[in-house]
């Protein structure tokens, strides 16, 4: 018998997927890991997942310190 489940299908690159799997250890939102860059997750989790990823990407971006602006001319 075929089993049907409802949720959000996510396509992303491998690094992001690995990060989501890391988050899943605490938050348990992944229903099924579908292989390279595809996940099937719980519907109610999508909003927080997007926030976490955004936060993570912000942390990974390096910008010059504010004070350096004074020397840019």
């Amino acid at each position: 018998m075929v089993k049907k489940s409802e949720g959000i299908f996510i396509c992303c690159d491998e690094p992001i997927k690995q990060y989501l799997r890391y988050l899943d250890q605490n938050h348990k939102f992944i229903i099924r890991d579908l292989g390279e860059g595809q996940l099937f997750i719980r519907q109610d989790a999508i909003k927080s997942v997007k926030e976490w990823v955004e936060e993570y990407l912000d942390q990974q971006t390096f910008r010059k310190p504010e004070s350096a602006n004074n020397f840019t001319n």
């Binding site: 489940s5 299908f9 996510i10 396509c11 992303c12 099937f40």
Partner: peptide
């Protein structure tokens, strides 16, 4: 980085 779709999985 993420594209998401509301879906059913069979």
């Amino acid at each position: 980085r993420i594209s998401e779709y509301e879906s059913y999985m069979l």
